[in-house]
Amino acid sequence: MFEKIYSPVQKLELLPFTNLFVKRDDLIDPYISGNKWRKLKYILLKAQKEHKTRLITFGGAYSNHLVATAAFASRSGLKSTAFVRGESVKNEMLMLCSLFGMELIFTDRESYKDKKRLFEKHFGDDEQAFFIDEGGASIEATIGCSEIINELAIHYDHIFCVAGTGTTAAGLLKGIQDHNLKSKLHIIPVLKGGSFIKDEIEKYTPLSEHLELHLDYHFGGYAKTTPELIEFIKLFTTNTGLLIDPIYTAKMFFSIIDLQKQNLIGANEKILAIHTGGLLGMFGMKDKF
């Protein structure tokens, strides 16, 4: 299950950049995609060590995390259950979850806010049940994400990553600190008012001068987009051949280009963008294209 992964670093031909590279975590697995694979790796090992047989997690109706957890469980001979935020619906993502054997419990938004209570109510007496927070947020997840830095063969002046919960960002920052790198870590929160990401990162690793948050590239907030961003995706993918999504990675690449236009990063500096995968989430916005 944890064999050597395929996540190459590829140079992106995109003017005016001369040293723009992409870490292709989106190629790790089609269903356990990108940072989801890294987040779940050590969580699953912990569950197996504790002899748990059912993974219990949480997410929205178009959650990449749910698909990844369902696939991970299926391949590992485990059962899985997800509390899905909102009313009962059918879509492509939940279809995949069901095909991987995941039980879906649709939950009203107020009840969903207290995930620990939901877990205790439904699985408190089940000694085989293992709690996984939304998005896989945990210390184990940060350890998995920190391994991205271990895999880099050269030094980069700037490393860019998008953030939802801040778990991947915390892992990257920890990796940079552990390796005593001088790289600047640029984090692009996808939620409006994303300054809280800094607090989330600090739960797992000390903040440092390496970290810089850019709060103006959320395009309205989580799972929000604009015609400008959709047009950017179409042009970017046509020109580079690299598929990006409107929820996460498009916002990151838009920020890189915009920051260069403002001369806040140099076109000739070595820049690495972490492609965190999650492309299946585009199904939730297919009407925008």
Rank of each mutant, 00 (worst) to 15 (best):
E212L: 11
Y248R: 02
T226L: 12
I247Q: 01
M252F: 03
I244G: 07
L272V: 09
K270N: 13
H218Q: 12
F253Q: 13
E200L: 04
M252V: 08
E209P: 00
L259D: 10
L213D: 10
H218A: 11
Y204V: 10
M252E: 03
A250R: 00
L259N: 12
L242E: 06
L243Q: 13
I257Q: 10
Q262K: 15
I256H: 01
L264N: 14
D245C: 06
T240S: 07
E209W: 06
I230W: 05
E200D: 10
F236A: 05
T226I: 08
K198P: 05
H218S: 14
E228C: 09
T226D: 05
Y222R: 05
F232D: 00
F253R: 11
I201D: 00
S255P: 08
L213Q: 08
K234F: 03
S255Y: 08
L213F: 06
E228F: 06
P206G: 02
D258G: 09
A273F: 12
M252I: 05
N239T: 10
F236I: 01
A250I: 02
P246L: 09
L259M: 12
E202Q: 15
F253I: 15
N263A: 15
D216T: 10
L243F: 08
I265W: 08
L272H: 04
T237D: 01
T225A: 03
L259V: 06
Q260V: 10
H214F: 15
L259W: 09
E209I: 14
L272G: 12
H218N: 15
D216C: 07
P246Y: 00
E212F: 11
E202D: 14
H218F: 12
K203H: 06
H210L: 13
I247K: 01
I244Y: 10
E209N: 14
K224P: 04
G241D: 06
F236V: 00
I265F: 06
K198V: 01
K203S: 12
L211T: 07
A267F: 13
I201V: 05
K270L: 11
D199E: 13
L243G: 03
D258P: 07
Y248W: 02
L242V: 09
P206S: 06
Y217F: 15
A273S: 13
Y222H: 12
I201Q: 02
Q260Y: 03
